[in-house]
Every structure is written in C-alpha cells, then in structure tokens.
Simulated scan of single mutants.
Amino acid sequence: MTDLQLWLSAVEMGCFFGMLALAYYLIHVGAGFFNFAIGPYAMMGGLCTTWLIITYDLGVWPAAATAVAVTVGLAALTELAIVRPVQKRSGGGELPALVAVAAVLFAIQQLAGYVFGYPTLPGQSLATFDPVTVGEVTVQPSSLLMIVVALLSFALSALWIRSTRTGRLLRAVGDSNRAAALLGLPVNRIRLIAFVLAGFVAALAGILFAPKAGVNSLSGLAWSLSGFLAVVVGGTGSVWAPLFGGMLLGLVEVFLPYYFGGQAHVYGMLLIALLFFALKPKGLFVRTVRA
C-alpha cells in the first residue's frame, strides 16, 4: 500500500462517499430519519449538468448552477409534497417517511431515465487548470476540487450547526419534532432547510464525482447505498463522523480490487456493513447526552 496515486484515489472516493453521508446526516439531524433519495439527488446533479452542456451548449458553470437548483428543488419538493403530508397523515411516524423517500428514490431514477436516457454520460469538470504533479503523484483538477469542496462542506456545516441559531435549532428539531413543536420552534421551516442543504451537498457531490467514472440514470441507487453505509460506519455523533466513514469505504473501494481483483470491493463493503450492523450499529462516533 505504498502507491501514493492509489491513496489519492482512495481519498477522492472517501470524500465523495463522505459528502453523500453528510447529506444523509443533515436530514437525519434535522428530521430524524434517513432520506434514501440522497443518491438520486447526486445523480441528478451530475446528469443534468452534462445533459445541459450537450443539449443546449451551456457553459459548464451555468449548467452546474442550473443542475444544483434543480436538485435543491427536488429535495424541497420531497419534503413539502411527499414526506410532510405522509408523516402528517401517519401521526409523525418514521417508517412511513422511509417508505416515502424510498419511492422518491425510484421515481427520480425513472424520471432521469426518461429525460436523460439510460447510457452513461461523461462527467464535466468544473476546473480547467492543468494536472498538478507532486513527486510521483499526479493530481487531476477534478480530484483536487472534490477534496477541497468536501473539506469545506464539512467545515462550514460544523461551523453552521455549532455557531448559528438555525444550526442549533436543527439539532433540537431532529431530537424530537413533537417536543420542538410544543416549545414553539419553527419545525417545518427547519426541516425544509435540512432538506435543501442536503440536496445542495448531494448535487455538488454528484457533479464533482461524475468526471471520475461518468454517471447514468441507475447510479442513484448505488450512491444511496454507499452514502448510507458511510453514515452507518461513521455514526452521527459528530458532523465530521460521516467523513471518517466515507474514508474507510474509499480505502475498501480502491485497495481491495487492486490487490484481490474483480469485485472484491463489493464483498468488502458487504462485510463492513454486516460487521457494523451487528456489532456497532451506532457507528464509530456516537453522540453523548449528559444527564
């Protein structure tokens, strides 16, 4: 494991998984459940960007901005038109919300296939500078941008949650929607903010990762599972926890196929999932509550 180029690839993969996990984390903290449509949000960001460039000859930045806006709109629509009414009719239960977002996952994938087609489309890099060579490692612009944006996303999220009133309200609402409502806190507004921010982070992740392997209308499910597993591994005890989970998965994704070939990373992911679900279901970092 001395090839630095492999380590760079693992870090890049880890940052992608971590950003997906961060999107999961924001909704879990703000709404109290996991939104399995995170992967399709990321897929929509990557697909929409490429499609706008190919079909309408837009510049990469206007296309990316439009794709982010579309994805954020989908995330907001998920909360306003689907999750909120479902939970209202079911008395606020988590299971109906999980079923609803699972349906959204497949609905977005079908919509993407209808609009963008099913072939894999090449990702579009937002950075245009030449690759940077440091020693034996060549850093592609898209890789550098992914790592920098991921670290900024986590840093800004941590700062926002800890230092702003809205960020602190996010935790309060997520701990108990009913208790927060009884205290007169703006539950609906905070939940909507959580969905919007998660959609924004997921869209960025999809756009930044698409240049590495392309994106198609079936990418959403695989990305949802990877992001969820990163949350399971990292836990929800800290804003940074999903990044640790993502990095572990990134190492598995890159090094297992390199040393063992084939689909070794798939079996590695499955083993990690089984171990954490069975032995440490709350993840590596657990939020402590003092009495």
Rank of each mutant, 00 (worst) to 15 (best):
M1T: 15
Y114W: 13
M1R: 14
I190K: 01
R89S: 11
A180L: 07
F285T: 09
T55C: 13
F34G: 14
T164A: 13
W7H: 12
A213R: 03
T78P: 00
Y258G: 07
A155R: 15
P85N: 11
A210C: 07
L77R: 00
V148I: 10
L20R: 02
S217V: 05
G261H: 00
A103C: 14
L274P: 06
F154I: 08
P122F: 10
G123V: 05
V137C: 07
P96S: 05
L111N: 09
M19R: 01
M247R: 09
I38D: 01
L185H: 07
H28R: 11
A181M: 07
A222V: 13
M247Q: 13
A172P: 10
V215D: 03
A172N: 14
G268Q: 03
F17H: 04
A158Q: 15
P40T: 08
P211Q: 04
A112Y: 05
L249A: 06
L221A: 13
T78M: 00
K282L: 06
A100I: 01
G250D: 02
V70N: 13
I147Y: 02
S238A: 10
M44K: 04
D175F: 09
G18I: 08
G93V: 01
W61I: 07
L121M: 13
A278I: 09
V70G: 06
I27T: 07
W223V: 11
F16Q: 01
A21G: 13
Q124L: 15
R290Y: 11
L218G: 04
P122V: 12
V196S: 03
Y41Q: 06
A203F: 01
D175M: 09
S238R: 09
G73F: 09
T71Q: 03
L221R: 01
L271C: 12
L77W: 00
W240V: 13
Y267P: 02
T78K: 00
L105S: 13
A65T: 12
L8F: 07
I108Q: 14
H28Y: 11
P122M: 14
I108R: 11
T2M: 15
G18K: 05
G135P: 04
V86F: 00
A102E: 12
L284Y: 13
F34Y: 05
V289N: 12
P186C: 11
M13W: 04
S224E: 07
A10L: 04
N177R: 15
W51G: 11
F34A: 11
A64I: 12
V266E: 15
A230F: 01
V132H: 10
V132K: 08
M43Q: 01
G73W: 06
S153N: 09
V289F: 14
A10F: 02
S226G: 06
G92K: 14
V239Y: 04
E79N: 09
G206H: 00
W61P: 11
V101R: 06
M43T: 02
D175R: 10
S143V: 12
V196N: 01
R290S: 10
L204N: 02
G92Y: 03
Y41P: 02
V233I: 09
L98W: 07
